[in-house]
C-alpha cells in the first residue's frame, strides 16, 4: 500500500543543513494501523507530509497505492490526495466560518460527487455529531472538533488516513474515542498511520515505528 524507498529530506536553513528524513525505508500494508512515535522534531510530520504527496523528498521514492507519487503532476497528486487520503491534524484545522456539515463537505469540494451530502450526514451520525450539524467550530468542544475533522477525512471514502497527533489536544476520554474511530476505519479495511510522541495510540496499533533524528530506529 505505502512503500518508502531510501527517502531523505534535507532542508537548508540559515544555521546549516537539517536532515529531516535520513534514508528512510519502510512499508505499510493495506489495512494496517501503524503508529510512528518519536520526540518533537524527529521528522514524524515530515514523513507524514511526504507520504501525503505534499512534501517532495530530496531523494528516494514514495509509492502509494501503486503510484510513484512524485512522478505525478502537482494537479494529479492533489486529486490523488483528495480521493485517496484523509487527514486528521492535532490542531483540527476546521474552517472557522463553516459549520460542522460544511466543514465535512469541504473535503468533497476538491473531488465532487453526487451523494456527498448524505455521506456527510451518515458520518456525523456515526461520530455522534448529529446535534452539532449546524454549529460553528467555535461552538464545539475539542473532542467534537476532532470528530468533525475525522468525518471530513472520511468523506471521500479514502483508503488511507494520515493523522498528525490526533489526540494531542484531547483529554484521555476524548483521545480514546477519536483513536477508536480511526481503529474502526482500519477494521473496515482502511490503512491508518498515526504520528505521535505519546503512547495513547499504541493499544490500537498493529505496529509502532520509532523515529529519531530523521531515521527509523526499530520496529515493534
Amino acid at each position: 500500500m505505502i512503500h518508502l524507498e531510501n527517502v531523505s529530506k534535507i532542508y537548508q536553513t540559515r544555521y546549516g543543513t537539517v536532515k529531516a528524513l535520513n534514508d528512510v525505508t519502510f512499508k505499510v500494508e493495506a489495512g494496517e494501523f501503524v503508529v510512528v512515535r518519536g520526540v518533537s522534531g524527529c521528522g514524524k510530520t515530515t514523513l507524514l507530509m511526504t507520504i501525503a504527496g505534499m512534501q517532495r523528498p530530496s531523494s528516494g521514492d514514495v509509492i502509494v497505492g501503486g503510484n510513484s507519487l512524485y512522478t505525478m503532476s502537482i494537479r494529479g497528486r492533489a486529486l490523488f490526495r483528495a480521493q485517496g487520503i484523509g487527514f486528521v491534524f492535532q490542531m483540527f484545522h476546521l474552517v472557522p466560518y463553516l459549520n460542522v456539515i460544511e466543514n465535512v463537505l469541504l473535503a468533497g469540494g476538491a473531488v465532487g460527487g453526487t451523494d456527498t451530502e448524505s455521506q456527510a450526514n451518515r458520518l456525523l451520525e456515526r461520530l455522534g455529531l448529529t446535534d452539532r450539524t449546524f454549529h460553528r467550530p467555535s461552538e464545539l468542544s475539542a473532542g467534537e472538533k476532532q470528530r468533525t475533522a475525522i468525518a471530513r477525512a472520511l468523506l471521500n471514502r479514502p483508503k488511507i488516513i494520515l493523522a498528525d497527533e490526533p489526540a494531542g489536544n484531547l483529554d484521555p476520554d476524548n483521545a480514546a474515542v477519536v483513536l477508536g474511530h480511526l481503529a474502526d476505519f482500519r477494521r473496515q479495511g482502511g490503512t491508518v498511520i498515526v504520528v505521535t510522541h505519546g503512547t495513547d495510540a499504541d493499544r490500537f496499533a498493529d505496529r509502532t515505528i520509532y523515529m529519531h533524528d530523521g531515521r527509523i530506529d526499530n520496529f515493534s
Partner: peptide
C-alpha cells in the same frame, strides 16, 4: 490495492458559497 483517479465533477460546496461565507465571517 489501487487508488484510481476519478474525474473531477461538480463541487459539493460551491466556490461562490465559500466566498460569501468568508465575507460574512470577516
Amino acid at each position: 490495492m489501487e487508488i484510481g483517479l476519478k474525474k473531477q465533477r461538480k463541487s459539493s460546496m460551491l466556490t461562490v458559497a465559500l466566498i460569501f461565507k468568508e465575507i460574512a465571517h470577516r
